[in-house]
Design a protein around this nucleic acid. Structure first.
Lengths: 352, 352
DNA sequence: CTGTTAGCGCCTTCAG
DNA sequence: CTGAAGGCGCTAACAG
């Protein structure tokens, strides 16, 4: 039919999928009604009989609209760019997963880019942003390269930051870090600890700053004093936690309990304690921030604060979609489900 | 989801990006030369002066071609669909990461879909495949839903399977599981172990079958006998490893060493040993398959077999691109860098 | 109720 | 050496 009307179809290596026109002349109408019927255009009142014929034909040919053509026409790609840091850490994987799920249910797909290499000069950056392949951007990296962020702020593109507040452009969706870290403090104080150490995250991440502030505030709310030597700043990795804990162990009076600002660093902390010949939780209690499947199987099982990360990611996608749709949005802090302390074997009563 | 209101924000006014025609009449020529010059068309011999003017204008307007329009025109989206299982496990995250990197350097971007929900009826499936948004598919799930795979095999779309051989369609890029698992056996035999248990993966994953076969072969190559009670099949999770190990511990003569077919299950194995009051490696040695950052910080540090997963993912992308380009490709087994046993504290000499 | 038509932004054959 | 023009497949006015 009109399939070969275009004279030379050149070399089409793959089998061409049915197009709108194919289903159109499969039932003797034109593309326009087919399009409108298939898209459920409310302003069209097709004769039931025609409509049925169209739907039947579409079904029979297993017609699916070409997303690229549609994207071009509507200047809407139904694609979201996700910029994420190292996926080897469960936190980020969980965010990506939550985002992908919600994106799918909103009719979007996710393009991923590694935040580590996401500078304005990178190929990924070019493809994602400049080529107009995405309708919006979900940035889940607390520490995206500075060059990238400033470049981004000049782009006419909706941006949502997940787990990061106060960027100078875009909207933020985050969790209540202060509250979450407070849960850890409360429980440790409950157990009689008064010398509680803190393995903080890098201060260039605002989420790390919030946790740290929350820790201090909660410690002081309990009438305790936080000596500055009890707080060590490090990166969000096992190695970082390990080194930080070694430092805490060198103190004249080491802490009897330690809260780590991430899951990975908490693992490092436990490892440092064990390696030094002390026991968790007998001599030192440990709590990590963010949960992971492996937590329950560590030796001892690591207590963690579980934050609603998947929900945060979902809300971030939802917000981004609203933004893309031109609706008003505002910064959001996800408070439900409430952060909760998962108690496992790594904490116990103060002994020292 | 309860949320918190902050400042209201809306999207910035959308500035339309420069088009080909903009740079064209910015220097008084037509789109056609501009297109050809910018794309480095070798068959065009533009006057140096014109060419310079064009490049300058493009630069000045910071013109970047619209990827969607180009995709429509060339029926090439420069996009690869990646179907992956649970990213919470480091193995998969590493594959995704390796794939993303290589895709970027090949000029492609990656669309991700969760293998767990990747059925032919899922929205993600629709968007990725049927809508023609991707030029090819990278499947890194050993156990993609059956419905999905059969549906896929009928699609005229290049497919590469990573870490999975013998699918009835597409090409495979995998690592040498047999060899890798053999390294673990060799070392344990070296250490004097003769009763070596194996916590296998689900037999519906061909990669799990290969590891299992490799294990048996290597055991027998050492002249040992493998009692069937020494092999327990389970899922690739901590919980799976835990339960499997419990089963092995109930044997009249439990193994003195255990090889687990995944990282997660190895963690579960160690946990089960410890929980039962035995010690690793004093009473039981443990080796896991696939490495992860956390391994070195477990208690005791977990010995693992490190496989070239990132390289595999990169090769898979490269193969897919070749396939997309219509070149001939064949199944690949990545043997470099060679799989290597990372010895950590979880293994020691046989004592029983 | 349905058809015609004009592009979305780009590439590319064919003329000049 | 450069221009003109026809689509890629689809949507959305605007007409009948």
């Amino acid at each position: 039919m009109s399939r070969d009307s275009g004279t030379k179809r050149t070399t089409r290596p793959t089998i061409t999928r049915p197009r709108l026109v194919d289903v159109a002349d499969a039932c003797g109408v034109t593309v326009s009604i087919v399009s409108r019927v298939l898209n459920g255009d409310p302003t069209v009142s097709a004769r039931p009989e025609t409509r049925a014929r169209i739907l039947e034909a579409a079904q029979r040919l297993s017609y699916v609209p070409n997303g690229i053509a549609r994207g071009l026409r509507r200047s809407r790609t139904m694609t979201i760019g996700a910029v994420l840091p190292n996926l080897a850490y469960a936190v980020n994987a969980e965010i990506l997963r939550g985002a992908e799920r919600r994106a799918a249910s909103e009719g979007y797909v996710l393009l991923v880019a590694d935040a580590m290499e996401f500078g304005p000069t990178s190929a990924a950056y070019q493809r994602l942003l400049m080529e107009g392949r995405v309708d919006g951007l979900l940035i889940a990296s607390a520490t995206t390269a500075e060059g990238a962020t400033t470049a981004l702020s000049t782009l006419p593109l909706p941006v949502v930051h997940a787990n990061r507040r106060g960027a100078n452009f875009g909207v933020s969706v985050s969790v209540d870090d202060e509250f979450g870290i407070g849960l850890a403090v409360d429980r440790l104080v409950d157990l009689g600890h008064t010398r509680i150490g803190y393995v903080a995250g890098p201060c260039d991440a605002d989420t790390a700053r919030r946790r740290r502030a929350g820790f201090r505030a909660r410690i002081e709310a309990h009438g305790l004093r936080l000596k500055s030597s009890m707080v060590v700043e490090t990166v969000f990795t096992e190695a970082g936690g390990f080194k930080a804990m070694q430092q805490l162990l060198e103190l004249r009076r080491p802490p009897t309990a330690v809260v780590a600002a991430s899951f990975a660093s908490a693992v490092g902390v436990m490892s440092a304690v064990t390696t030094s010949g002390l026991r968790v939780p007998d001599e030192i209690s440990v709590i990590g921030f963010h949960d992971a499947p492996v937590a329950a199987y560590l030796n001892p099982p690591l207590s963690t604060v579980r934050m609603p990360l998947a929900e945060m990611a979902a809300a971030a996608v939802e917000t981004l979609v609203r933004l893309i749709d031109g609706k008003e949005v505002e910064d959001i802090v996800i408070r439900s489900p409430t952060p909760v302390l998962i108690e496992r074997g790594s904490i116990g009563p103060a002994t020292a």
